[in-house]
Design a protein around this nucleic acid. Sequence first.
RNA 1: GCGGGUGUGGUGAAAUUGGUAGACACGCUAGACUUAGGAUCUAGUGCCGCGAGGCGUGGGGGUUCGACUCCCUCCACCCGCACCA
Length: 993
Amino acid sequence: MHAKSLDSLCIYYLWRFKSNEAMEYDFRKIEKEWREFWAENKTFKAEDFSDKPKYYVLDMFPYPSGAGLHVGHPLGYIASDIFARYKRLQGYNVLHPMGYDSFGLPAEQYAIQTGQHPEKTTKENIARYRGQMDKIGFSFDWDREVRTSSPEYYKWTQWIFKQLFDCWYDKDADKAARIAELVATFEAQGNANVNAEHDFEGTFTAEEWKAMSEKEQSSVLMSYRLTYLADSWVNWCPALGTVLANDEVVNGVSERGGHPVEQKLMRQWSMRIKAYAERLLTGLETIDWTDSIKDQQRNWIGKSQGASVRFKVDFDSAQSTDHEIEVFTTRPDTIFGVSFMVLAPEHPLVDQITTEEFAADVAEYKRQASLKSERDRQSDVKNITGQNTGAFAVHPFTGEKVQIWIGDYVLASYGTGAVMAVPCGDQRDWDFAKHFGIEIINIFEDIDISEGAYAEKDAMIANSDFLNGLPAKKAIKTAIHEIEKRGFGKGKTQYRLRDAVFSRQRYWGEPFPVYYKDEVPHLVPDEDLPITLPEVDKYLPTEDGEPPLARADKSAWNYQKGDRMEFNTMPGWAGSSWYFLRYMDPDNQSEFVAKEKVDYWQNVDLYIGGSEHATGHLLYARFWTKFLYDLGYIPFEEPFQKMINQGMILGRSSIIYRVSIDMKVDEKRVDSGSQLKPVFVSLRRKDSFTKEDYIRYLSKHYNDYPFSTDMLIGEIDFTPIHVDISFVENDVLDTEACRHWRPEFAYAIFAPEDDGKFLCGHEVEKMSKSKYNVQTPDDLCDDFGADTLRMYEMFLGPLEQSKPWDTKGINGVHNFLRKLWRLFHDKNNEVSLDEGTPSKDALKTLHKTIKKVGDDLERFSFNTGVSNFMICVNELTDQKCNNKHILEQLTILISPYAPHIAEELWVRLGNQAGTISYAKFPEFNEEHLVESSHEYPISFNGKMRFKLEFPLDMSKDQIEKEVLANENAQKWLEGKDPKKVIVVPGKIVNVVI
RNA sequence: GCGGGUGUGGUGAAAUUGGUAGACACGCUAGACUUAGGAUCUAGUGCCGCGAGGCGUGGGGGUUCGACUCCCUCCACCCGCACCA
């Protein structure tokens, strides 16, 4: 419109005014008014206690980044909002909150670059997010908003940390218990009979315990606490200056930024999540998540069952004696197939058992292995390396001596860092044995292992003493039984899940409620929480490599006991592991959540978010939930009962094609083709575009220069170039806008289609700034309205599927809402309703829609819901229906999807403002759909040929007779007798010829 | 390699228990009303064929009166895991 003259503007508005177009469905006015109404009246405030049943709908809360929301973010929020509104209509007391996961790296990186406090940028970003979300008309109860970075919130994150510190895992009771209980046990009987998840080595008596100093006792207890300080191998990312959790490292580089990660031994806080491995696994069976996410978690936890077996190191061969190598195996049934042992190069026994003869080689191998990064070791799988130690182990059953090797295919960090090698049953062992010429013993009956190992569990065991003739499954049990009986091992379950590192060397995160006295950590008492973030001069590590918090003066902290505070901060997942609980009671000053409130609200009924948090947030939140359950603070063990993972919305980039060909021209004029005005060719002309065409276009724009095809060298090629999608509509490029966009297009020559339009190609890819394909919801809200955006995002396809964003269809949805509006209004945009009895047809349309839309909501099929509304409005328009009863019901039905227009129409129908959100969801009455006859599709050999209408109460025989008598049927029978006629009453007739 | 998912017109898709494949929408074609349009209405639009008709849900096979739907097998793409003993 900006390009139009003043004159034309006047005519434009005159026309709009005259035709009343401007007054029709004025979404800008309607949506603004209703949003204000909802905010003022707190329409969506959830009551903490109610006679109504509760329903908790939660979205994964966003990290408020500087880029704002793009159209992919609201997809899940819209779906959950529709569902929340639906549940309100069904009479539920709905908890539907929103907040911000506002601690995190990007704000801190920005702070480092600009010196601005991350709190400032975080607040600005939150304001932007809030503004964007408000535009879409979500029914959030904003009074419950939480921000993980606010001290009122992280006070309780710190408090939960303290509870974890104050607990240990009692394996007998299979739950967390207070440390005081453990101390009492130690005082009474030492640690010998304590069955705990721990990493304390050795035993002590009650007397020995009592004799320990406070520092010694503290150190022992650390090995039992559910969060503990320990020197552990961590993923250190030098570029980010911090450690990362396993789930934050992907293929050996950091998930954020892709920086290299190395292993480093550091004193860090860790979470003893291992204690919950089994419950995290079994709990999956009680929740309604996708198999994909459950499998990812199962995989991450990595349970394997088998036996741990101790092999004695042979007395004569080893340098020192009395050593045992403990291995874990899932196939104890193959123990007679062991022909060597392999230790990880880092295994602590390596140096002690290596013979003099091999010492130099072993040292060299270890050195080389240590140089390889985790990543190299992972990618270099095919290259078989290893080194004999010269030592031998004694086979516990046969007493035979087997060689002990080291090899980097054995991981120090899994199991015991040592394996018993069974080359006949394990391909890696087989490869290793072949490569180094070690004996391969076959212990399977009638199995050929000359070409490779046999890893299946369906063979009979042979050559194995007491296991002979047993199938694998039985043999495993028998072997474990025998191993335990003879006392050199026992059945064991091993988990791949590691304890989670909980310290980050960053500024913008929760401070620990911990201070140190003589390097012994102490907890800050509850009454002094929260420990707030101190001010620092820079957000960088100190010169000594201490975390940024070490820059803070003692006086800058709001707590000053001991020698110093903890300088690390908590990781991003700390705050997000329990935020769903705080929404229930966001302002509570004395508890993280009141017991009565969590007893009422219980866990999240429906959780919607991306699947990318499968092994991070979703696992940690389950862990903390189980822990809080163990302590009796909350009444459930799983935080998120049902989860839906929305698909990613991909961008649709627009691409134009630049002619690329070398050209020889007069040096005075231009040196090469690249300095000529670029020529862009419309999509459909691309394939037929010739050198002559190119020359023609050039000549037209350089009147005075004699171009000819002789100057062209080689063949014409096209370079695809991304253009900003804001200049493109329905793949047609606004070439003038494009010229003004960037200098390189200013003098471009565009070769359009025959109709003068310039068509772009397109590419479906992730939305990104550099591809000029980012769509923000803001523009669409302004242009079409929030209701259109909401319905369109749903209309795009199934929620779980990832799909390209394409605004082409948005007009269709917008027009649908206009059509809906017209049902209620006459030509002058006055409300016009028939208050009489609805027609049979209208009732049928309505109830068909009630049924379908209701079913669609129940199975989260939001896209078909929109289609059904369209069908309904199309039918009612055809029927010229403006019946008040029908339209009122339809308005309620559509209100979860398009709440603004529904509110407006609701009032126009004569109802009280704001009451539609708590109206009653229309009840389906089958009576209106009852038909007396059915139009039967008549098929021949399964192919539908024509239709015939018969009464529904007509008998099968009668229908068969009628069908065969029909002249149309005679044609298809071609005079033959049908072999069989299938009549399915109310469905179909199939004639078999 | 293992696990999960997807595959249907020019496009996004629908088909809920095996029963009319392509609803709904975009786009496109023709027309009406208009004539500076993000408007409305009518008709058409899976492919091949003038037509009768034939073909058609990634490919091949099977079960069935009847298969997008169930079974076997192969292929392509996406996601996750990957020396886990």
